[in-house]
């Protein structure tokens, strides 16, 4: 049973805040050959949850993420983030929505070369016109928390991939977004950095109760999630819950991936 503000009352009578609610999402790309990227996807993410999305190449993972990211409108279906349908907002309001409620982490970091590390991190606050003292305070504290304090005045070409991704995560979290969206955040990292980044995300999820949605190829990365949803050919395939044992969860993920039709080579534990 669902309340107006996305409050969900489960069978046990507990009240949970439903941060992301999607029902019957469809995406059709028109063209000479119309292409159905997603079919009837349902997805619900509770506040504080860390959810992974997996699937073979071309399964529609990124399309789903783009729709949740408010950059690609679904053809049909219902989508609410924090009780709000972002596609109903006018452009100006949508910009405010993005800068206040959402945080993004990308495979290719997408830091701006013209800015220093700390300026990159402050960018969402700059866009929102926060006062400078507070901006600096928050940047300092989040950089401290992420262990990149010494990079403050470095430019983006002077730092390593792992450091760049930490910077990107700091930028995604500095404004305390309701939902963090990560698109293959470990895709461009070596195994050590990838592990560090995932542990960091997991820690932030635990400590700050930040809701996260992660799209990945990487079973190792996915094993840090609470649950993983598998998509194949644009349709829901299955869902795996973490439970208590991360090693077992990792094995379960590998098994599903094998069943999905890919070989294990297609999903190496470490991506280079």
């Amino acid at each position: 049973m669902r309340g107006i503000l996305g409050l969900l009352i489960n069978k046990q009578g507990e009240i949970k805040l439903e941060l992301l609610f999607a029902r019957n999402l469809n995406k059709i790309y028109p063209g000479k050959v119309t292409y159905k990227a997603l079919t009837n996807i349902d997805l619900t993410i509770q506040k504080g949850e860390f959810v992974g999305i997996m699937g073979p190449s071309g399964s529609g993972k990124t399309t789903l993420l783009n729709m949740v990211s408010t950059i690609d409108k679904p053809t049909s279906g219902e989508l609410r983030i924090a009780g709000q349908d972002p596609y109903e907002l006018p452009r100006e309001k949508l910009a405010y929505f993005r800068r206040r409620e959402l945080g993004f982490v990308f495979q290719s970091f997408n830091l701006l070369d013209t800015l220093t590390v700390s300026e990159n991190i402050m960018l969402p606050l700059t866009l929102d016109g926060t006062n400078i003292a507070q901006m600096k305070l928050r940047a300092a504290s989040i950089m401290e928390n992420l262990g990149i304090s010494e990079l403050t005045d470095k430019r983006t070409y002077e730092i390593s991939g792992g450091q760049a991704q930490r910077t990107a995560i700091a930028r995604a979290l500095i404004h305390n977004p309701k939902l963090l969206l990560a698109d293959e955040p470990t895709g461009n990292l070596d195994s050590k950095s990838a592990r560090d980044v995932m542990e960091l995300m997991s820690k932030l999820n635990r400590e700050d109760n930040t809701t996260m949605m992660l799209v990945t190829h990487d079973a190792m990365a996915a094993s840090y999630c609470h649950r993983v949803i598998f998509i194949k050919d644009g349709q829901f395939y299955s869902e795996v819950n973490c439970g208590d044992n991360r090693a077992a969860f990792y094995q379960k993920i590998i098994n599903v991936l094998a069943l999905l039709g890919g070989t294990e080579n297609e999903f190496p534990t470490v991506r280079v």
């Binding site: 452009r91 100006e92 929102d128």
Partner: peptide, 10 residues
């Protein structure tokens, strides 16, 4: 990137 981070048209 900037738009995604919430830069408005203005």
């Amino acid at each position: 990137i900037l738009m995604l981070l919430g830069m408005s048209d203005k």
